[in-house]
Write a protein that binds this DNA or RNA. Structure first.
Length: 569
RNA sequence: GAUCUCGUAGCUCAGCUGGUAGAGCAAUACACUUUUAAUGUAUGGGUCCUGGGUUCGAGUCCCAGCGGGAUCACCA
């Protein structure tokens, strides 16, 4: 198989051989010891201090007998200054004249030793005394430049390329790296908060025989030894509750969930939800806890509770608003759902332009009305409370109204971020709710929940009153890092698998009788498959190839028409 | 799934009512020992996503396909 290489790639590959002939290994094995980082050098600058640092080379500026460049490590960039005299103290100037000027390229990893100084322009730099090539880059990175006003030129912005080649994105777009560092800080802050309350981080199965705990289409796989279908989890809720039954009083898990549904800028097939269950608590307690947790995360990970999102500022410092779903609909849709029958809800939903169908029960209708008229209004953090009972099959009935449940969702910027219940622990009621789901399924709701008999058995043994909360980690990170797409907060968002052209095999062409000297050029001239060659007229091939030979001034014998006929017959 | 939109050099992008494929950066060569979007001079670099069609002639117009993006639908 031949690869079509760009001229730049060819230059860099040729540099590998030249380096080796000078005794320089372009991919050495030895450790390179560093004693500083770009950030440290700038923060703790000391004139004349000796440093050793490694990183990727950017923005080389050759000025004859001296060069400037930037070295990028995981903390940022630092300027380096390489002069011919300081790295070639003897008469042999090869290291500078050959290696630095011609064999080192943008993107290479190098290690340098040198002393700190400030240039005339006042930029902190390393005056390099020795350098080591640590790894050659043979594919050129996109060239992104930032001018003195901070304006980025030729930015690497194509989402497809950025997501497919996140490694390139991370190198050339520093803000991307900041987002992912913030993501880790946010997760750590959550974990610290839960641990400081004495709750236990646990792991529960990803591969499940019954995909429970949520309403969604699962990914299906198969276990060979047991010869049964298995599902990737859509939620971990039912497993965490089993642990509460088992006697733990507070458990949480960062759960990677998988849902076989559409993808867009707020949905990825795999996503992360943090779920926590605490015994003897109710959803009022959980609201206070959730609010405190988010405030803690803001302070610890961002250092502020005033968070910019788009052109808005979200204030996590103030007490979060609380409103019941009934009041929210009353306020924004001008309709009181209290005591309404399914057909009344149906007509109202229809009257405000919602596409309705017979598979929709009361809960679904109310949810649609809320989604259409209310959801988008809750920009600042707001708890929406008390959802209808048939929307929430795992949630305890409201202590004051059996039509409702003790459930809240946290809305930020018009989107759901967290969902929490006073958990249903009455096994009789739970079984009934599952059966109601089954009826919805029979009406055509293909996302109603599966019945998990073992979970019901667990509840029959007794589960203490418990409050549980799930928070979409990806969405929270989006809001806290000012990103509007989930793809921006996942290192490797799901993409349609890339098709790599499996190039033609040069040996197949040689096997037809094409001389070795010609085979590569036959492919490059456009006959990139045996079929294509055989489908073409010999005269056309003959002319095309000799034309190619002339154009590229190839030093190989011209092709004869008889030869071509021989290849394709 | 529907609609709109994009696909041109390694990268970012121009390319008008159809008429000889362009710029900047990057690369290559030369000059320059404190530059910083370094600078100056020169050079090379293209399957205009793929396949059909219309036309004397298609990067450009039409159709189909592939891939991306946006909006909507779906998805708490």
């Amino acid at each position: 198989m031949i690869q079509q290489l760009s001229p730049e790639e060819i230059v860099r590959r040729e540099a590998l051989d030249k380096l080796r002939s000078l005794g320089i290994d372009p991919f050495p094995a030895a450790e390179f010891q560093t004693n500083s980082t770009a950030k440290e050098i700038i923060d703790l600058y000391e004139e004349g201090k000796s440093v050793s640092i490694a990183g990727r080379l950017h923005n080389m500026r050759d000025m004859g007998k001296a060069s400037f460049a930037q070295l990028q490590d995981s903390t940022g960039k630092i300027q380096i200054y390489i002069s011919i005299d300081s790295i070639c103290p003897t008469d042999d100037k090869t290291l500078y004249k050959e290696v630095i000027k011609h064999l080192i390229h943008f993107g290479d990893f190098i290690g340098v030793n040198g002393k700190l100084f400030k240039t005339r322009m006042g930029e902190i730099s390393i005056h390099v005394e020795s350098f080591t090539l640590l790894a050659k880059s043979i594919k050129p990175l996109p060239v992104v430049k930032t001018d003195k006003d901070g304006v980025i030129h030729d930015a690497f912005t194509d989402p497809e390329l950025r997501y497919r080649m996140r490694y390139v994105d991370l190198v050339v777009n520093e803000k991307v790296r900041d987002t992912f560092v913030a993501r880790t800080k946010i997760v750590n802050a959550m974990r610290n908060f839960f641990n400081s309350h004495g709750y236990l981080e646990v792991d529960t199965p990803v591969l499940q025989a019954i995909p429970g705990g949520a309403s969604a289409r699962p990914f299906i796989t198969h276990h060979n030894a047991l010869d049964v279908p298995m599902y990737l989890r859509i939620a971990n809720e039912l497993y965490l509750k089993r642990l509460i039954v088992g006697g733990f009083e507070g458990v949480y898990e960062f759960s990677r969930n998988f849902r076989n549904e559409g993808m867009d800028r707020t949905h990825n097939p795999e996503f992360t939800v943090m779920e926590i269950y605490v015994a003897y608590k109710d959803y009022y307690w959980m609201m206070d806890f959730t609010e405190a947790m988010i405030r803690h995360v803001c302070n610890e990970a961002l250092g502020t509770t005033q968070v910019e999102f788009g052109n808005r500022t979200i204030d996590f410092g103030q007490q979060f608003q609380r409103i019941t779903m009934t009041d929210a609909i009353k306020q924004y849709a001008g309709f009181d759902i209290t005591g309404k029958t399914e057909s009344e809800l149906f007509s109202f939903a229809q009257s405000i332009g919602i596409e309705v169908n017979d598979a929709m029960g009361k809960g679904k209708l109310i949810d649609e009305i809320f989604g259409a008229k209310c959801e988008g209004n809750f920009i600042q953090p707001t708890f929406i409370m008390d959802y209808p009972v048939d929307m929430s099959p795992l949630c305890k009935r409201h202590r004051d109204n059996p039509e409702l449940t003790e459930r809240f969702e946290l809305m930020i910027n018009g989107k759901e971020v967290a969902n929490a219940y006073s958990e249903l622990n009455d096994p009789i009621d739970q079984r009934q709710r599952f059966e109601d789901q089954l009826k919805l399924q029979e009406r055509g709701d293909d996302e109603a929940m599966f019945i998990d008999q073992d979970f019901l058995r667990a509840l029959e043994y007794g589960m203490p009153p418990t409050s549980g909360m799930g928070i979409g980690v990806d969405r929270l990170v989006m809001f806290l890092t000012n990103n509007e797409a989930i793809q921006e907060v996942l290192f490797f968002p799901q993409m349609r698998p890339e098709k790599f052209q499996s190039g033609p095999n040069i040996q197949d062409f040689i096997a037809l009788g094409i001389p070795e000297s010609w085979a590569e050029h036959v492919i490059k001239a456009g006959y990139d498959s045996i079929e294509k060659l055989k489908d073409s007229k010999p005269t056309a091939i003959h002319q095309q190839l000799n034309g190619y030979r002339k154009k590229n001034k190839l030093e190989i014998p011209a092709v004869q028409l008889e030869e071509v006929i021989g290849w394709i017959s």
